[in-house]
Design a binder for these strands. Structure first.
Lengths: 200, 200, 200, 200
DNA sequence: TATGAATGAGAATTCATTCAT
DNA sequence: CATGAATGAATTCTCATTCAT
């Protein structure tokens, strides 16, 4: 019984993930999701309050998974530099493995402040703070410059990765492979664009 | 007559900018825009094909302005490093001055691939390429590392600035001032987070 | 312009009157009303907030008419006895002339306390009070017994007439004619059933 | 087993009585009734054909009780005058004791002709005929005027009582007590409003 | 050109009823 | 007999777009 419930809930979430990614929240019809999940339209409402609730639940659940994944991976690394590199690689990897989820989070999450005023996206902040914590740790260890403001740096780093993923998500084929992109981006942040050996 | 036309067109674009920023594209009603622009609902359709067209035109026109602005500003600087710094500052400045425009570009532009399949967002690519060109120029001059892939770096830099603006746009009050944020972000990209004087 | 608006408003009210009377409020579809009124479904919502609002407006407007009618008629009579008789006749006459309106007021009005909690049916109370006033007047003139409680008597009299109309409204053909019914009912109330010449 | 069945049937009827009275037939959900009766939604359909059938059964059963009650009480009285008085008092008493039943009969019964075309409300006519019989009896005995048409008078009397009950049922508190109201109403019908000692 | 009343297709949601367990 | 999860038909209301004035 519990299993079947779980199963249907999951089927709906998965269907919604696919449909929302395909069409976007507003253009996705509840009927589309039901069809994809192979349940009746009404069944959706046994598991979710309304259309908004599907999106919110989807966020929560997927973000939970992503968060766990990332935490585990990052903790494996010892120093802050490695952690940053790992984060970059992992983020892009996760995006590749969950294109639909990524697309929704990228595209629809941004609207959250519009259509779900009360919904505070805590999971997202947790995710951002993983970066913030690495930076603070790096500063404590003297590896990262003192002047860096973690609240800005975490966003900058996330934004860089995010824009890269968007590029992938929205274009059909990848121009650069994950390893390259991750290495490039973490390198920019770690050592900068400027050529140190160059003398002006 | 031509003037009057221009005037009404502009009034509608401005109204749409405000309304779209406020409610998002899908939740903004054409009637809302008409009201804000102080024209009749039907009048909108004398100047625009349909609702989508309002959004597209808005992008084009606003992006044109932004592009011109940015080009002029960046050209004033001599070397690539200064140009990067200027770009960062200017971008955030523009966001502050055109909160509504920024919000639309941030939130709604992302959906563009969804609801306007055929619309290729060239202006945005031009904007991105401003960064790409600075980087290439820097590389040519030997200031920037050779290994940097401009196609990736331009996105990373834009993404960093963009995430910062989103933070501003979506939160009501700014935690960091523009100068600080711009300096921080361009510094990350120019010289990295890593403390060079630190010996491991 | 004003005329056309009035016209459509009226057409919708009339259509609603017919449809509500035929099927009852809950089983009447807005689409039915629109069809009957020969307007598009959406047009209804230019003139009324929602389905409830149609019913409420209908009440208000029809009751206004009925109230005016009745006031004028009753005022023509001089003494309370004649007024009571006139009221009875007029009430039944109005019911006959506006079968649909009567049916709605009879059948649907009763539910008002259920689905429109906030709607205070003042018109109906005004109507009831027309009877109450006649009774008080009769008492003041010494024609009616002092012990009569107008608050009860007005309801009793109205109830008697109303039940009679319900009988007519719900059955297809009238068993008794209006004059007879009105005379009978007002006689019951004026002089009672008891045969005074009879000696126990 | 039979007992248990009866019990569940009764529980459902009682629950339905409460819920219908509270919300009205159309706004009452079968699930509400099931919950109130502490049975599963599906169980209802083991005892009743459908939602309509619940209402019809409810009428039948409750009206049977009311009818029996009233017959017994009225038969105790000897003459027609007393019987009328008794009927009035009893009716109002029954309404008070079974507010929910009264509310349903008052509000929902009126719609019966709409949603259950084939359902002929015989019990109600039996109830009405109790009054009719008293009147005929009174006429036979010479107590009541010959000119009175029982078919009209029974409705008038019932309507008067019914309107009074509606007033009670729909308002939260009673303004007049039962004895007063019953006495007033039966007096109106027995001896009329007109003051016989008054000389015009 | 400008208007805004009218249109009607479209979508979310509800809930009586069924049926596998 | 009892359950309650699942169904899907049905209905209200919205809003982009049109068109007569």
């Amino acid at each position: 019984m519990k299993n079947k419930n779980r199963d249907k809930h999951k089927r709906i979430i998965n269907a919604a993930t696919k449909i929302f990614a395909q069409k976007g929240f507003f253009q996705a019809k509840v009927a589309d999701i039901a069809k994809e999940a192979q349940v009746a339209d009404g069944t959706i409402y046994l598991y979710f309050e309304n259309k908004d609730d599907i999106l919110i639940s989807l966020f929560e659940e997927q973000m939970n998974r992503v968060l766990e994944d990332m935490k585990t991976q990052v903790l494996k690394e010892e120093d802050a530099v490695k952690k940053i590199e790992k984060f970059a690689f992992n983020h892009l990897k996760l995006v590749e493995l969950n294109k639909n989820v990524a697309e929704i989070i990228q595209v629809e999450l941004r609207q959250s402040s519009k259509f779900m005023k009360e919904y505070k996206n805590e999971k997202f902040h947790e995710y951002l703070n993983l970066i913030g914590d690495i930076i603070k740790e790096g500063q404590k260890e003297g590896i990262f410059k003192e002047g860096i403001i973690p609240g800005i740096a975490k966003r900058a780093f996330f934004g860089a990765l995010d824009e890269m993923s968007r590029f992938w998500v929205l274009s059909s084929r990848k121009k650069y492979d994950i390893e390259t992109a991750a290495k490039q981006i973490s390198d920019y942040f770690l050592t900068g664009l400027v050529n140190n050996s160059h003398q002006t």
